[in-house]
Design a protein around this nucleic acid. Structure first.
Length: 782
DNA sequence: CAGTGAGCGAGCTTCCGCTTGACTT
């Protein structure tokens, strides 16, 4: 038994550290937090200065038990949890649970898992920082209060009540998505006409070349046309040429957030996929810790990286940098995400190879030379007017870090339509140019794009909301709650005008383009919109984008010992609780109701609103004598944007198409899509049929065919007992009501000859001997 | 598989941040 017990948070870390420290140390992990607030009554004694009531959650009992035993046998215990607020709190909870005196126990910290870092940490232990612990307790308690006070309000006030929730982080995340959607809905595009001129010429070496130049932008077709007219019969000359050097610097190595963004842009991964793969790489020892907000690299890592750059590309590609975190909320308990050994190019986790390469390249690039560019701009004069055209091109003089890595951009960062500039052929000042053609193209302004998972993470990080360990789970939560959905959107075709000047003649055309198509974006649902509006209306402080940043400042004050944590929590709680009580008592139910107009047939009101089962439209009021009519919105429709006509269209279902064999045939859309109902039977309607226009004779074959298929499937029917013998893909089986039962193999061949008594016996047998899976499960539970 | 839409109110849900398994069809 080792003399010393050292506790870290992550088991992968424990393994590495144990190797470094040798046999005097036993290194164990506590797997993150080992205690949490109990759930009853929020786990907080509000009346008693917000005293927290902590318990060891069930899934942590085993770890805690093991640590207790080891602690008893060890002479010295070292707490080596992460150096941040949460890490400090974990150490304190360990003291509490293991019965250690916080003022005597050795607390050590390191930001990197390297031999010198850990050895120096062990030489310089400190004591637990109880102020920092209290800052964490305030954070934890405040989050519990917000979540457990707000969620029940939603259960009470929402008509849809399937485990809704609200919280400091998730509710603001939904708000971001909701506001972007409304911005897009309200967006009115404006158009400008852009001038592009295409030239041919001989370059300074006499080679025939062609290139493009740009003119001014015009706000309307008239302006563009006048300009083109003024160019008729003109001569073009190179007026001047400017050459400017420029450089590009590499981005910082990955944090959790930037890794999620780049993996999304370059590899198309969702944030949780990225994190699962990164976790595998980390556990196998290929990369450093993957939940981090730090961009710094250890000394050892820097040596390793520059060595690798020198070996692969030569010394002139090395340029070391220390990156600083832009983000104030960063707690920097770890290093940036980087490979553990730069000479390792392949990993034996096939799924994670691409992600590993991305991390490798970004890490390399971060310590590589700037790229040097030369930007050339030629201005071109027009003999018939005073305007100038501009042609520009960029030449890469030295690739530097671009040799391995180029960061991708989000669509909202793109400047103009074409951001990559090509080369400009070498021209001489004063030389004549031949105009091939000049084109004025109408271009529309675009609204901000909808968020992707990764761009939402970026936004949250900028606002200081959420932590590296919670970005992916937060997105899962808002998707699971149905506040937000991830989907594609088809674009719409739009006309745009062009004017072409060629051979001194202007030709006008109307062309078409596809616009507004989006892939894998986050859309708010009606539920998300309605809940967000409600929360903003009643809890604008918590829903404010700056709320987290403000309370973070207060947590810092607690950590600095300037403010007592219970006072801070109380200052928040007292007014908040008043809002909570007030809202519970007085707020109306959340319905998101919107008037659409009057139904001409009945003169009754048509509204869109949230119903018990989601967004819907309704004709008439529930207080009316006659029951109102209801119809569910289609998947892509929204209460906010549905038009009167679209709503009325929804009421056209169910439609009676006609009669067949004496009973009516009707078509409608149900839970599983469009269907036909006939004689108490249902038939799915394939995609190519439109339920709003399909005709009787189109659907009759569907009914007949399905009936036939069913007939062929049926071996025998016992009407009275409601038992059927059917042919399935795995052979004949018994169907009773909704349940299926197997027929023993030996008897399958003569299934058609089975009598009712035999079948009943088989059912009893099957119930008495359920399939293996249940059997195993029961045994495992003992 | 293919409905429903209001309200009664049993008994339940819910937060954010740390960290990984242990389950099955």
């Amino acid at each position: 038994m080792a003399k010393n017990l050292l506790i870290v948070e992550s088991p992968a870390k424990a393994k590495t550290i144990e190797k470094i420290l040798g046999k005097d140390f036993e290194v164990k992990s506590c797997f993150g937090h080992i205690r949490d607030l109990e759930k009853d009554d929020m786990g907080i004694d509000v009346q008693n200065n917000f005293q927290p009531r902590y318990i060891v959650p069930e899934d942590k009992e085993k770890v805690v038990k093991e640590l207790k035993q080891l602690a008893k046998k060890s002479e010295e215990i070292w707490l080596a949890t992460d150096e941040d607020r949460e890490g400090e709190a974990i150490s304190w909870h360990l003291c509490e649970v293991l019965g250690l005196d916080p003022s005597l126990t050795k607390r050590i910290v390191f930001h990197e898992i390297t031999k010198p870092a850990i050895e120096s940490a062990v030489k310089n232990p400190r004591k637990l920082d109880l102020n920092l612990v209290n800052a964490q307790q305030a954070r934890r308690i405040l989050d519990r209060i917000v979540g457990f006070e707000l969620s029940p309000i939603l259960w009470r006030k929402m008509s849809m009540k399937n485990n809704l929730s609200a919280g400091r982080v998730q509710s603001v995340a939904v708000r971001i998505i909701a506001e972007r959607e409304r911005e897009i809905n309200a967006f009115v595009p404006s158009s400008t006409f852009r001038i592009d001129a295409f030239f041919t010429a001989k370059d300074i070496t006499g080679k025939a070349v062609s290139f493009k130049a740009e003119g001014s932008k015009y706000n309307n077709e008239d302006g563009a046309e006048k300009f083109l007219q003024s160019c008729i019969g003109a001569n073009y000359k190179v007026a001047d040429i400017q050459v400017k050097p420029s450089k590009r610097t590499p981005p910082a190595p990955f944090t959790t957030s930037t890794l999620q963004q780049e993996a999304g842009r370059k590899l198309g991964y969702g944030v949780s996929r990225t994190m699962i793969l990164a976790q595998k790489l980390y556990e196998a020892g290929y990369i450093s810790y993957m939940r981090t907000d730090s961009v710094s690299l250890s000394e050892t890592a820097m040596e390793n990286i520059t060595g690798q750059i020198g070996a692969e590309y030569g010394k002139k590609y090395i340029q070391t940098r220390k990156f600083k975190n832009k983000n104030e909320s960063a707690q920097e308990a770890h290093e940036a995400i980087r490979p553990t050994y730069m000479d390792r190019r392949q990993v034996d986790i096939p799924d994670a190879q691409k992600l590993y390469e991305l991390i490798w390249k970004r890490t390399m690039a971060s310590q590589m030379a700037d790229a040097e560019l030369e930007k050339t701009t030629a201005r071109i004069s027009i003999s018939t007017n005073k305007d100038l055209l501009t042609a520009s091109g960029e030449v890469l003089k030295f690739d530097g870090f671009l040799k391995v890595y180029m960061e991708s951009r989000d669509e909202d960062e793109e400047e103009g339509d074409e951001k990559t500039e090509g080369m400009l052929p070498p021209l001489a000042v004063g030389q004549d140019l031949n105009l091939k053609e000049m084109k004025a193209t109408e271009r529309f302004s675009r609204p901000a794009p909808r968020y992707t998972e990764a761009s939402l993470v970026k936004k949250l990080e900028e606002l200081g909301i959420g932590r590296p360990s919670t970005y992916a789970p937060t997105i899962s939560t808002i998707l699971k709650r149905g506040y937000v959905e991830k989907r594609d959107k088809e674009g719409v075709v739009r006309d745009f005008r062009t004017l072409l000047l060629a051979k001194d003649k202007i030709t006008k055309k109307t062309e078409q383009e596809n616009t507004g198509a989006e892939k894998s974006k986050l859309f708010p649902t009606d539920l998300g919109l309605v809940v967000t509006d409600f929360l903003i209306q009643h809890f604008d402080d918590v829903m404010d984008y700056g709320f987290t940043a403000r309370i973070e400042n207060e947590f810092d004050e607690i950590a600095n010992g300037k403010v007592k944590w219970n006072k801070m929590v109380d200052d928040f709680y007292t007014p908040f609780k008043k809002d909570v009580d007030n809202t519970m008592e007085t707020a109306e139910r959340i319905s998101g109701e919107r008037d659409l107009g009057i139904d001409p047939a009945t003169g009754k009101k048509v509204i869109a609103r949230m119903g018990r089962f989601g967004p819907m439209v309704q004709i008439g009021d529930s207080n009316d004598e006659e029951k109102p009519r209801f119809a569910k919105l289609k998947q892509e429709q929204s209460i906010e944007t549905i038009s009167f006509d679209e709503a009325m269209e929804l009421f056209k279902l169910p439609r009676v198409l006609g009669e067949f064999e004496g009973s009516p045939v009707s078509v409608s859309i149900g839970r599983f899509g469009p269907y036909i109902a006939h004689d108490k039977q249902f038939y799915s309607l394939a995609k190519e049929f439109d339920p709003y226009s399909v005709m009787l004779d189109e659907v009759l074959p569907i009914i007949v065919e399905k009936r036939q298929a069913k007939l062929e499937r049926t071996i025998k029917v016992f009407e009275k007992e409601k038992i059927q013998l059917l042919r399935g893909p795995y052979g004949p089986y018994i169907k009773k009501g909704l349940r299926n039962f197997p027929i023993p193999k030996e008897q399958q061949e003569k299934a058609a000859d089975l009598g009712i008594e035999e079948v009943k016996k088989m059912i009893e047998e099957a119930i008495a001997n359920p399939p293996k899976k249940n059997f195993r499960k029961k045994k495992a539970q003992k």
